Simulated scan of single mutants.
Amino acid sequence: MPAIRPTLQEVAVLAGTSIPTVSKVLRGGTDVSATTRERVLKAVAATGYRARASARPTAATAVPALVDLVLTAVDNSWAARALGGVEAAAAEAGIGIVITVARDRDEWVTRLLRRRSEGAVIVGVGPTAMQLAGLTAASVPVVLVDPVVRPPDDIASVGATNWEGGRSAGEHLVSLGHMRLGIIDGAHGTLFNDARVDGFRTALRHAGRGVPDRWVAHSEWSRIDGRRAALPMLADADRPTALFACSESMAFGIYDAAAELGLRIPDDLSVVGFDDLPEAQWASPPMTTVQQLTAGMGATALRILLDEIRQRSNGASASRSATRVELATRLIVRESTAPPPDLRLE
């Protein structure tokens, strides 16, 4: 016997509100308090409510005129590359994109619901279970790029082989002879950050080496905070000869800290970043880094989204297992890494 679909009535009862209010939240109505909106989205997530398929793109066309692109910012190179990849794939498909910057907790979701978005590529944003439930309930397909946490089984995602990238950084530094290695990482619990750190540690462990706690520093994903995190570690006479940073913004902070302390890269300190943005090859010295195909991730996500829209227009279930794609990473060796000083002096 097929499962009974949750109803708006059930959502309204659980949220302690009315059916029209639930409907208004799922349409992105603005005349609903933040507290009520949160209660409704929690109830939607708890019940698994989904709207019945609406008459959006038909099987004959199955291509929307516009889709949404949600980012946390547009003023950095990583976001610009992701945007460029999405835009190129959209242009190839003959559709336009609407850019939304996720500046606060729920406003971006409300904007998508109010526009009756045909679908969204979400880049660098960590949607909550409630937000994803609200979009799913409104029949808005989404694809996450570089997801912050593991997505639900029915939400598609595109990422990079972050573990392999971290491993390749570790193997490179080991091959140069480094025994004293450290890490500047980002937020704990972030899917891509944890994978990069684990891959790096695994490479060191296989070589009989490790990273002592005093040579692990946590940073926000910024150059300024990368410098703050690296300074105490590098100012100590007992310091590492090589550092791996989980992003190039943090790696540039290491460059700044080293310059402040009179340490030369790579003579006194080797540095490996992660991303391969244009700034990495312009650095002095040019930065050894792990390349992830950010534009490729954006383009792949857009194509997956369009395929999802076509599948739904042909009657496919929105609750089936979603697509998971990881694009390969690659170590790019430049001039910021070299054997440690003691080996060069022998």
Rank of each mutant, 00 (worst) to 15 (best):
R196L: 00
H206K: 13
A207K: 10
A195D: 14
L181A: 01
H188Q: 13
V197R: 10
D198Q: 15
H218N: 04
W215Q: 08
F192Y: 00
V211P: 03
R205K: 12
H218W: 08
T202H: 15
V211A: 04
H188L: 15
F192M: 15
H218P: 00
A207R: 08
T202C: 09
L204V: 05
L204P: 06
W215A: 13
F200T: 06
I183C: 06
H188D: 15
A187V: 15
F192H: 13
R214T: 05
R209C: 13
G210A: 10
D198A: 14
V216E: 04
M179V: 15
R209Y: 06
A187P: 15
F200R: 03
V197Y: 01
W215P: 10
L191G: 03
G182T: 04
T190P: 00
L191S: 12
A187H: 14
D198M: 03
W215G: 08
G182H: 05
N193M: 06
H206T: 13
A203E: 10
N193D: 12
P212D: 00
V216S: 07
A207F: 02
R201P: 00
G210Q: 05
G182E: 04
L204A: 11
T190L: 12
R201L: 15
A217M: 12
A217P: 14
G210Y: 02
R214I: 11
W215D: 07
M179G: 13
V211D: 02
D213M: 04
I183W: 02
M179Y: 08
G199M: 08
I183P: 01
F200V: 06
G189N: 12
R205V: 03
V216T: 11
V197K: 01
F200K: 09
H218K: 04
T190F: 00
R214K: 13
I184P: 14
N193S: 03
G189V: 02
H178Q: 05
A217L: 05
G189S: 14
V216G: 01
L191R: 14
V211H: 01
R201T: 08
D185F: 11
H188A: 13
T190G: 07
I183F: 06
R180P: 09
I184V: 15
L204S: 05
H206Q: 14
P212Q: 07
L191N: 02
N193G: 08
I184E: 05
R209V: 04
A195T: 05
D213V: 11
A203K: 08
G199H: 12
D213P: 06
A203M: 12
V197N: 06
A203G: 07
G182C: 01
D213S: 12
H188R: 15
A203V: 01
D198C: 02
F192G: 11
H218E: 11
L204M: 07
I184S: 11
G186W: 11
A195V: 09
G186F: 07
G199P: 05
G186K: 14
A195R: 15
R201S: 04
R214Q: 07
T190N: 14
V216W: 09
F192K: 09
D213C: 03
L181S: 03
R214C: 10
P212H: 07
V211K: 04
T202R: 14
D198V: 13
D194V: 02
A195L: 13
G186V: 07
R180C: 08
R209F: 07
L191M: 15
F200H: 03
G186E: 09
W215S: 02
G189R: 13
G199F: 02
V197S: 05
